[in-house]
């Protein structure tokens, strides 16, 4: 279970950030973070994966505390940032070898997963090219391969569909559903409400650094459409 308790993060020199955010996700949950730009989605995600320190609160994953045992916590997650900045002078293969080494993935598991992911994401040839020659979408696909390669228990994706072609998008949606059915927790931020409505069982709506909706998708959709609810709760009037 992923447990986020009262985390707050305010950026130095501004009042922007997140305050008192609490959330619980269980095995098999697919949760979408939605909200306007600057609402706090990315800040929350970066706090959960250990990029940003938070001012207060705690994050635990299956009993492992992020602050107390960051290396073990991070070994259980797979993260894709909103902008996939990678080492341009490495080939995709060298990057995947680096990630496989850092996550200490078993050779058999690595080879099996790589064969599957490289094929599904049509990356078998591109993996030998330099990353500097990749498009945004190819970098996204490489990051997806690297994060799925070690079979994480928690997958966190920051706007994962930006730049992906229709085939890769389809693969990602199927993979999210399939991994969730195996007990993996999936959390992602998005602006695409239609996909969130179809894929997720949980939804969190952010507005000005605070969680204004945190409920199951089923419960939310009983009241109104996602689009109407989003406009309603993020309206300042």
């Amino acid at each position: 279970m992923l447990s986020i308790k009262n985390i707050s993060k305010i950026y130095k020199g501004s009042n922007k950030g997140i305050s008192n955010l609490s959330l619980e996700l269980h095995q098999g949950d697919i949760c979408a973070f939605i909200g306007a730009n600057g609402a706090g989605k990315t800040t929350t995600i970066k706090s959960i994966v250990g990029i940003h320190p938070f001012d207060k609160g705690e994050v635990t994953l299956f009993g492992t505390n992020l602050q107390a045992n960051p290396a073990h916590f991070k070994s259980m997650i797979g993260y894709s940032p909103d902008t996939p900045a990678l080492y341009p002078n490495m080939t995709g293969k060298a990057y995947l070898e680096l990630i496989a080494s850092l996550y200490e993935i078993d050779e058999g598991e690595r080879n099996k997963n790589l064969a599957y992911l490289l094929k599904e994401l049509t990356f078998e040839t591109a993996v030998h090219e330099l990353i500097s020659s990749y498009s945004h979408g190819m970098k996204q696909r490489l990051v997806l391969i690297s994060l799925l390669m070690h079979n994480p228990k928690l997958i966190i994706l920051d706007e994962p569909f930006v730049g992906l072609d229709p085939n890769a998008t389809r693969f990602l949606i199927d993979e999210m559903k399939s991994r969730a059915s195996e007990g993996v927790i999936i959390l992602y931020s998005t602006h695409v409400l239609e996909v969130a409505e179809k894929v997720c069982n949980k939804l969190v709506i952010f507005h000005k650094g605070e969680v204004v909706v945190n409920d199951t998708m089923e419960h939310i959709l009983q009241k109104a459409s996602l689009d109407e609810i989003f406009r309603d709760v993020t309206s300042d009037d």
Binding site: E97, S101, L102, E107, R110, T125, H128, S133
Partner: peptide
């Protein structure tokens, strides 16, 4: 950059070496 070898063997190392 075009003249890159396509080695099919994957190598991993201990984290410090990597």
């Amino acid at each position: 950059s075009k003249k890159r070898r396509t080695n099919a063997i994957w190598h991993t190392h201990i984290p410090v070496t990597a």
